[in-house]
């Protein structure tokens, strides 16, 4: 039988007395819910209606000023150069430029989806300990080794578009342990958890790759500037 802990609530006037039984590895504590509540009608309902109206108005204005693109009729014999996927897949298509199709088109997106699905089942760091809280030296060593490995790998494949954000994030992660870091920054950065760092890295990479694929790729998937080629969404 696992060990249980009894934790009495301290303010009996606000809340009826409750008993909570918690498993030891659960970090979440029951807090006293002192939040003020309001009626759903009208407070939530009106906000929702206004939100709906704002959304419709914004999109209607957008639709009045910008027409959807329509190119010539589909012609299998006339391959445009470059042939681009919808914008949200252009990050993948950009990866395809660096890695073989199995890696870029299957392995990487597959792993990303897998990782996303299993995130909540990894019950690590439930206390939300910051990455550099605790034993920074060991963390730093591990981080540096890991980053060097990744950067070496990316350099081998010449994936500069991923390498740059990786290095920027690495700098941000090690910044608190460097003397010139302003204390206010340090306070914040120190508390960022590893999972947040990883997610931020993923988002940065995804956004940068998508932007490059959408705006900076021209005929032959060569680098161009956005004003040199049109963009169709």
């Amino acid at each position: 039988m696992t060990e249980y802990r009894l934790e009495p609530s301290s303010d009996a006037t606000a809340t009826p007395k409750r008993l909570a039984i918690l498993r030891p590895e659960t970090a979440a504590r029951v807090l006293v819910d002192r939040d003020e509540t309001v009626m759903t009608v009208p407070h939530l309902l009106l906000r929702e209606i206004i939100l709906i109206q704002i959304c419709v108005v914004a999109l209607a204005v957008l639709s009045l000023f910008f027409d959807s693109p329509l190119e010539g009729i589909a012609d299998p014999t006339n391959t445009p150069n470059p042939a681009k996927a919808p914008w949200y897949f252009l990050g993948l298509q950009e990866l395809l430029h660096y890695f073989p199709p199995v890696v870029a088109g299957v392995l990487i997106p597959g792993l990303v989806v897998m990782a996303m699905v299993v995130i909540p089942y990894f019950r690590t760091n439930l206390e939300d300990r910051g990455f550099l809280e605790g034993s920074p030296r060991r963390q730093m060593t591990l981080l540096t080794m890991f980053t060097v490995a990744i950067v070496a790998f990316l350099a081998a494949w010449r994936v500069w578009a991923v390498m740059v954000p990786t290095l920027v994030l690495y700098s941000a992660m090690v910044l608190p342990s460097l003397p010139p870091c302003p204390p206010s920054w340090r306070r914040r950065l120190v508390r960022v958890t590893l999972s947040d760092w990883i997610m931020t890295w993923f988002v940065a990479v995804a956004v940068i790759l998508t932007l490059i694929g959408t705006f900076f790729r021209g005929p032959g998937w060569k680098w161009i500037w956005p004003w040199q080629g049109g963009v169709s969404l």
Binding site: L70, E71, I73, P76
Partner: peptide, 8 residues
């Protein structure tokens, strides 16, 4: 069914 759609 335009070029954009087809090739994407």
């Amino acid at each position: 069914w335009d070029q954009l759609a087809f090739w994407a």
